[in-house]
Write a protein that binds this DNA or RNA. Structure first.
Length: 332
DNA sequence: GGGAATGAAAC
DNA sequence: GTTTCATTCCC
């Protein structure tokens, strides 16, 4: 599986295995206090010294007992007074749950850990994307394209986090409250299909190994419409993949097929060459291949982009792993 | 279907 | 000052 290794080594979000073994980082979960020095407390980003409400906000100076962790939302009876400078090794969480200093957050799942790492890595600078909604979209696109064996690292990290959480708070039970009011829908900026497509394109850049200035330049070109002569227009009517395809192991990418060619007549390699995705994204032993029946599922209405220079109708290209296609006897 | 992280932005 | 958004996955 050296091909997969070479593939993943290009991916900047990959973290060395050792880091997963050590995950979560020391002091991520502050130990329950045994005195009132609040040595493991954190500052809230507003400057309010509350402690990391959930994992951090344990306060034995208060009368709360372990079995009440999940339901006690009252602040500690003694105001925290220590300084983070006393514990310089402790990471400062950026927020404290609004549910109160004694609220215990849930352990993160694999995707959440990945997303957190992606943000913390600084790979996505403010110039690339500063909106967390779109960072989420980018993270999701990278996540979906991530090889299973690499996801397993994050799944293992999530399992460790869950175990640590259970050790710290054995009586914790996730008790979601059913809200009685529907969330107020807000009119937000940058919420069009074009904006979301941009976020997915940023993901493709990152998957392709672009980082730092190179990534910023690629995104800048994308925003200026000079990336491969492609500019993005909103998809008026996105289609869902056919059900028999969604169950398959695949990587979905955006591609551009010739305007005058039926999808089933298109050479996948040709499609990839026309696509904005660098061919280096695909490991040597993996050849893109259109699945049988692709033509029946290529809906012209699934328009995500259009090249400026030539008359080509954009479409979606579903790329399967070569070995999967061979195994399924679908190679043509 | 809430909530885990994130923080700008809409309330 | 408070809550929504965008995502995946666990409970």
């Amino acid at each position: 599986m050296s091909s997969i290794a070479s593939f993943t080594q290009q991916i900047p979000y990959q973290v060395e295995h050792e880091q997963y073994i050590q995950y979560p980082a020391p002091n991520y979960y502050p130990q329950p206090q045994t005195d009132t020095t609040f040595s493991n407390q954190y500052y809230y980003n507003t400057g309010v010294h509350t402690g990391y409400a959930a994992f951090v906000g344990y306060d034995t100076s208060a009368s709360s007992s372990p079995e009440s962790y999940h339901s006690v939302d009252t602040p500690p009876s003694t105001p925290p007074s220590s300084d983070h400078a006393l514990n310089p090794s402790i990471e400062l969480p950026r927020r404290v749950s609004r549910r109160g200093p004694n609220h215990i957050p849930r352990p993160r799942n694999a995707f959440m850990i990945f997303r957190s790492e992606l943000c913390a890595s600084g790979k996505i600078s403010k110039k690339v994307e500063g909106d967390n909604r779109h960072i989420s979209i980018t993270a999701a696109a990278i996540w979906k394209a991530m090889p299973d064996h690499e996801k397993q690292n994050y799944q293992a990290a999530a399992e460790v986090e869950k175990i640590k959480h259970r050790q710290l708070y054995p009586d914790y039970r996730f008790t979601p409250t059913i809200r009685t009011t529907k969330p107020l829908k807000r009119k937000v900026n940058r919420n069009s299909a074009k904006d979301k497509e941009r976020s997915r394109q940023v993901a493709q850049f990152i998957i392709a190994g672009k980082i730092g200035d190179e990534l910023e330049e690629a995104v800048r070109n994308l925003d200026e419409g000079s990336d491969d002569g492609i500019q993005f227009i909103p998809s008026p009517n996105p289609i869902s993949p056919a059900s028999h395809l969604t169950s398959q192991r695949h990587t979905e990418v955006r591609g551009w097929v010739p305007h005058d060619g039926l999808p089933e007549t298109v050479n996948p390699q040709s499609v990839l060459r026309q696509s904005p995705l660098p061919s280096t994204q695909f490991p040597p032993n993996y050849a893109p291949c259109l699945p049988t029946g692709w033509g029946n599922h290529c809906d012209p209405s699934c328009t995500v982009g259009i090249p400026r220079s030539r008359s080509r109708t954009p479409g979606r290209v579903r790329v399967e792993l070569y070995e999967d296609v061979v195994a399924a006897g679908k190679l043509r």
